[in-house]
Design a protein around this nucleic acid. Structure first.
Lengths: 266, 266
DNA sequence: GCAGTAGGTTTCACTAAGCGAAACGCTGTC
DNA sequence: GACAGCGTTTCGCTTAGTGAAACCTACTGC
């Protein structure tokens, strides 16, 4: 708790951060302005970062830019871990904090396939394991992913699942009802399933994005409404779920700022 | 020159680097072993990195992993700059160091299109500008890119350029001669053009890779052999060209280690 | 041609930031 | 119940880091 932190390191990282926001390069005075550090100090840090290849110096323009080593930092982890490996420890953490099951699933065809399942000790059990598949439009995870598909992809899925008359009725003519639900999900940023699949079983799900901004999976928290009210689920557990989903997205290379641009573009 | 560097920053970055090589997480004793730092010191650095969100701590397992902020560092620059913007300052630097023209080009269909051109003041001029196009199989840049295409893509290009009888003769039946040349280029890692396009004009080119390991462009140094011998070009300028190509590749997210894997796989 | 400005680089004396050996406490193991 | 291994904290020492100031270039404008 009361650990003396290494301020020099924090300062140096702040400088790196400033450069990532200014990829076209910065000169010394700009760095001093942006960080508030005295000239000599900023200079020393810049020299250090250059000597370690985290920055590159261009003598002609007198500017510094991010160096090659910065890239190798993040990419090492990103490329070598798939989303399940990456998310696993974060889901475990979430599960321990809220004392609920947590799952990560992705869309495969018209079904949701579970890639990670974190179980808490409990009398009541749900018979789902990693690899289990369920209909996409019946689960919170499924809807959280569907909500961010492109219109053509969504159409394909709606066409296929509409072949089943029962489903066709549920999602409306040409999926009209489903599309309305998905619009709500996009607006609020999460999906809710209140007993649709199994009575008494509710669930909230949040999308996980990748570097391109595409939703590649979703994580959810299912609860028995007898044990945990929908109100508790949404008010207490959902914020943590969203936070973890955000962290995992960032680790996959997703940049927050894009979201605004995309929304502005719509 | 004789600047006092900030050692704490260097140490901290080294720790981050160790984590990027071990994305599944490390515990304190492992970090002390890998970095050689005393326990208390490593502990303080880890705490600092966690508090700045460059690492994430998982209490359950007692492990640390790269945190979300590490990703945002590199991706900010990567996503916002296209390859021309990214490479420009490095090519300028190279040009100033070797006092020669430097170009960056990429493949568009069966032609090379120039995206960046750095010119040195000189009496002799070459009439190429950004956006100029020349036949791929006639230029060092073109061959440097062709050499790393997949077999089907290469076949398509050979089919198309073989329509011109003059070219067909030059590259051999079904591009046999060209394929032999490309094999040599892959082996040595660079392409040479000695007067093929214009007599008296020689050029060396090196490929630039992206995060997926694909060659997305190439950079070259053209010279008049009257002014700069092929020997000088290859022995003096080529090493610098290769170094810059490597740096640009890394900035695009290319990881050196992959190269070995790929070579091993062949 | 010279004063003036702005950036890059170096100096230097001060001091607190960082160091790391050692001690402490917790947990699990044999 | 002794031991081992890890995480965490303490504490006095000292060196690494600090930042004001001076110094050196360029440029720029007059």
């Amino acid at each position: 708790m009361a650990v003396r932190l290494v301020e020099s390191l924090a300062k140096g990282l702040e400088i790196l951060h400033v450069f990532s926001a200014n990829p076209t390069g910065l000169r010394l005075p700009e760095v001093t302005k942006l960080t508030g550090l005295p000239k000599a100090t900023a200079y020393r840090f810049l020299q250090t970062l250059v000597s370690e290849n985290y920055l590159h110096f261009f003598p002609a323009a007198g500017t510094f830019r991010l160096g090659p080593k910065v890239m190798s930092l993040g990419f090492g982890a990103l490329l070598s871990l798939d989303i399940a490996e990456l998310a696993q420890p974060y889901l475990e953490e979430l599960s321990r904090r809220i004392h609920q099951n947590v799952n990560l699933g992705t869309l495969d065809g018209v079904e949701v396939v579970y890639l990670v399942r974190i179980k808490v000790r409990s009398i009541l059990g749900i018979n789902l394991t990693v690899g289990s598949r369920i209909s996409a439009c019946n689960s919170a995870i499924g809807k959280a992913v569907l909500a961010y598909l492109g219109p053509e992809q969504l159409q394909l899925i709606i066409d296929e699942i509409s072949l089943d008359p029962a489903v066709a009725e549920k999602i409306g003519r040409n999926g009209k009802l489903l599309r309305q639900q998905l619009a709500v999900i996009r607006k609020q940023g999460y999906a809710v399933n209140d007993g649709e699949t199994v009575p008494g079983l509710a669930s909230v799900a949040a999308p996980v994005r990748n570097a391109k901004g595409l939703v590649e999976a979703a994580i959810n928290v299912p609860v028995f409404t007898e044990l945990c009210s929908l109100k508790t689920l949404v008010e207490v557990h959902l914020p943590l779920l969203l936070e973890i989903a955000r962290t995992i997205s960032q680790l996959r290379g997703y940049q927050e700022s894009e979201e605004r641009e995309r929304q502005a573009g719509l």
